[in-house]
Amino acid sequence: MTPAVHRVVERREETRDVTTLMLEPVEGPRLAFRPGQFNMLTAFGVGEVAISVSGAPREEGPLRHTVRDVGAVSHALCQRQVGDLVGVRGPFGSDWRVSPDCAPGPILDVHDVVVIAGGIGLAPLRGAVHELVARSHETGGRVFVLVGARDPSQVVYHDDLEAWDREGAVVLVTVDRGTPEWRGRVGLVTALLADAGFDPSSTAALICGPEIMMRFSARALVDSGVDASRILVSLERNMQCGLGWCGHCQLGPFLLCRDGPVVPYSGVVSTLLNERER
């Protein structure tokens, strides 16, 4: 499966090591996707890496990916300038099940949706929050966006956070390390749960971030009374093909490119997240 050649039409430096690339196909229409899915992005001559789509289906314009510079390929992608070419294969994998064309997910029969993002974990959730905020205007449900970051400089998508807040979502941000200028909260992201004021008996949750953070966030939600079957998490492993062939994204019973990245927290996942890989 060959990549579709895309051109960078805009880039935004979100933080010191995080860049958002806006891509338009050289030929043909924008790829259709559902929030939570990922694409395989090729930096030609360097390699290919799995990056979640951070756009929203109902958002006009180019295809949006936010890349953290953590390896050779992601570094090359972050260096791409406007006009440069990037290959895109996808979309692959499961999604947050929030858009109207999705199979019914846990958000459908609840009043409140809690979205918990750790660091760059907000990227795969961004499209979902867009959908949820728009949907809340139709259903009257509430959306809570809880964001944890290492320090204030690592908080991404400030414009979106402000827009969601204006549009009625409860947006709370906390950082592990404050700065003299930081007027917001300092502490673990789970500490925000007490402040959010959602109704645990009618709440679904979408979580993405470092695995430890997802594990403890999911447990805190369950402890507060949220039904574990209504919690979705997005898992990550090495991915090289996106097609279920290469075997790198093994995690217990899952091939994460095929069965994930978004999986329900209840059942096998809660056990897997406690398994010790080292």
Binding site: G178, P180, R185, V186, A191, D195
Partner: peptide, 23 residues
């Protein structure tokens, strides 16, 4: 909300943790 702080010369109060209702 209440910030738990420690002060340092030239840096003022460094916030260790912020706590809110129920804390």
């Amino acid at each position: 909300h209440v910030a738990i702080e420690v002060h340092a010369p030239g840096r003022g109060g460094i916030v260790i943790e912020t706590v809110g209702p129920g804390a």
